[in-house]
Design a protein around this nucleic acid. Structure first.
Lengths: 87, 87
DNA sequence: TAAGATTTGTGCGTATGTATT
DNA sequence: TAATACATACGCACAAATCTT
């Protein structure tokens, strides 16, 4: 917890951030239909630029871990059914 | 007075706006504990986006020139004592 | 009591420019 | 060239608190 970005890692910062959020989702810390940390929160939590925080969130969407409601926020997506995406 | 934003300058717009406000503070045009121009006022005065106006105000806070009261406004801070920040 | 305006807080969408790898 | 990261700027929408009418 409260890990820092490892800029020496081959894993880019946005993936490290996404990884922690995924761990929180799978650990039940972040619940379905509840918001994940906002961009601003991620920026402060990790000390990264907005672009990086946004990449992390975008990655979570692409991986099916979250969904975004425009102008509202990004929430944990229910993956109880299709854990595997067919696309 | 009534200068325009110089988009060719290496100084970003938010810093140009902040600079004018600082001049007004140091010239006594803006007094201690009196409000500085609101975000809306800055948007109209300079023709910039809210994000830019907010950056200018945030910069003034960070530099110790102002303090913000949520939902009230941002006011000129008394710097008579610690003109120099120790941090 | 209620409505409206004002001001800041928050969140996201988008774009450009620079730098590094 | 492409991906990544950071800084900046513009746009839109809604919430919350405050102040006025």
């Amino acid at each position: 917890m409260a890990a820092e970005i490892d800029y020496d890692s081959p894993t880019p910062p946005y993936r490290q951030i996404a990884a922690e959020i995924i761990r929180d989702i799978e650990a039940g810390v972040l619940r379905v239909d509840r918001p994940i940390p906002s961009e601003s929160a991620l920026i402060q939590r990790w000390g990264v630029a907005r672009d990086t925080a946004r990449r992390a969130v975008r990655y979570l969407r692409e991986e099916g871990y979250a969904y975004t409601v425009p102008q509202r926020g990004t929430y944990v997506r229910d993956r109880s059914d299709q854990t595997q995406e067919v696309e």
